[in-house]
């Protein structure tokens, strides 16, 4: 199509927006909020995912030893652990050490331990595995192997709760898809009705255009551009606000006890582009639905 026609279409689309300012501001505002909600959800999901992956990067394991284990057996267990790839014994906690640690954690309530006639806590080996690139550790298998060994009472590792957390993440992801779908439908509804209102306001002009020989596409294109412009503006605005939110969060380090510092990351480039393109596409599809049934002249 000729460049002159496109400049005509763009002028018409901008004129339509100017002539129906209020309708467009309301439509744009609603669409922007919907995209912002979706973007925020995606932002949180991606950050949660990154944190979980970060935590899962190092695996720690507590190997509890039977009471009265001989030094030889303990050395055998330790040397078996050391033979595992990337495994390192972080520290050996004696029975006394464990009780001391428990006293420290209980603080003011440490008096509760005074009535104990014997120390019920086992000695343990704290093992740390660094998960290198391309190296897949099977903590379940290691746990079973260790538990079979003489002198080992019980084995616990950090991924137990991570597994449960990942299950929760899947649930959030499904919830996100449902919310995203509903938001998309909402956006389509908003755009369709905004464009319908501008079509109504130009009904007379459309009729005359058709009577002087305008093709359907000649009449439709400015409305499609209108929807696309609405999508472009909503997408840009939502991403800007989202980035501002990220900027504020990233300057304030957020601490969670025992989980350390949360470092936020902004949406990866392709996700930001996806939000923008989806916003434009929704604007276009919404206006396409609106113009669909208006040209039987």
């Amino acid at each position: 199509m000729r460049l002159r026609l496109w400049s005509y279409f763009l002028r018409q689309a901008l004129m339509n927006i100017m002539n129906n300012r209020l309708v467009h501001v309301i439509g744009l505002g609603t669409m922007f909020v919907a995209i912002l909600i979706f973007g925020t959800f995606l932002f949180l999901l991606i950050n949660l995912n990154t944190w979980v992956q970060g935590w899962g990067h190092s695996l720690s394991m507590s190997v509890y030893l039977e009471d009265g284990i001989s030094e030889g057996k303990r050395d055998m267990i330790a040397s078996w652990i050391k033979s595992l790839p990337t495994a390192e014994i972080d520290r050996f906690i004696t029975k006394e050490g464990a009780l001391k640690e428990l006293r420290r954690v209980l603080g003011a309530q440490a008096g509760l331990l005074e009535g104990l006639s014997t120390n019920p806590l086992p000695a343990s080996l704290e093992v740390v595995f660094e998960k290198g690139e391309g190296l897949r550790l099977d903590p379940d298998r290691i746990k079973k192997e260790l538990e079979k060994m003489e002198g080992v009472e019980e084995v616990q590792y950090s991924e137990d709760w991570l597994k449960r957390f990942k299950g929760l993440m899947s649930l959030i992801r499904v919830g996100g898809l449902i919310i995203g779908g509903l938001l998309c439908m909402g956006i389509l509804f908003i755009v369709t009705n905004t464009i319908k209102l501008t079509i109504y306001s130009r009904k007379e002009e459309i009729e005359i255009l058709k009577l002087v020989g305008a093709t359907d596409w000649f009449v439709k294109t400015p409305f499609l551009l209108e929807g696309a412009i609405q999508g472009i503006l909503s997408g840009i605005l939502a991403l800007l606000i989202l980035y501002s939110g990220y900027y504020l969060l990233s300057t304030e380090k957020i601490h969670f006890t025992s989980l350390g510092v949360f470092d936020f990351i902004f949406l990866p480039y392709e996700y930001a582009l996806l939000i923008f393109l989806a916003s434009v596409a929704l604007g276009l599809v919404g206006s396409l639905i609106a113009v669909g049934r208006f040209f039987d002249i």
């Binding site: 000729r2 026609l5 007379e204 009729e207 002087v212 020989g213 305008a214």
Partner: peptide, 28 residues
């Protein structure tokens, strides 16, 4: 077609109303 009720666009000038019939053809 010359319509009985003229079918002119009140917000466009005389020139724009007439030019409309050629705008739709994509002429220069």
């Amino acid at each position: 077609f010359v319509f009985q009720d003229f079918k002119l666009l009140p917000k466009k000038t005389v020139f724009e109303n007439v030019a409309l019939a050629l705008e739709v053809t994509g002429e220069r």
